[in-house]
């Protein structure tokens, strides 16, 4: 799992830094940051990434719309997506997963849990 490339989509600089901090446990990983869904789509056009980690509540374009658009795009439809959000209700979780997210993590995040979930997705995807 060396040299992975992550796209972290978060409007909160605090969370972007915390998630990036946790991801650095993957040796040689590269982190691309985006502040909302539109910014993320732009970055996906120019950057090659292995996984997207996105918040839901963001200005301009929220995380659910982003998940939906990523799944519709031929180039990115198989990209693993992890939703990281304060929305912890079961219906939010179901909605996120139904749109095509591979995992749904509620804030506040535990670094070890985040890494475990990412590891499981990467293992499943070979």
């Amino acid at each position: 799992m060396d040299g992975l490339r992550f796209l972290v989509v978060e409007d909160s600089p605090t969370m972007r830094q915390l998630i990036s901090f946790s991801l650095k446990r993957f040796k040689g990983c590269r982190i691309v940051e985006a502040v909302d869904g539109v910014d993320a789509l732009k970055k996906l056009q120019t950057e090659e990434v292995d996984m997207v980690l996105t918040d839901i509540n963001m200005p301009v374009m929220d995380g659910l719309k982003l998940v939906s658009l990523v799944r519709q795009n031929v180039k990115t439809k198989d990209l693993p997506i992890v939703i990281i959000t304060t929305e912890g209700a079961q219906e939010d979780r179901d909605r996120g997963l139904a749109l095509g997210a591979n995992a749904y993590i509620s804030k506040p995040i535990q670094s070890s849990h985040l890494l475990k979930v990412i590891g499981e997705i990467l293992e499943k995807n070979g």
Partner: peptide, 17 residues
């Protein structure tokens, strides 16, 4: 240690920000 790591990461990020 994992918990402590997590705590330290949170504290570091909070303090930094």
């Amino acid at each position: 240690i994992e918990d402590q790591n997590n705590n330290l990461a949170n504290l570091y990020v909070a303090s930094y920000q």
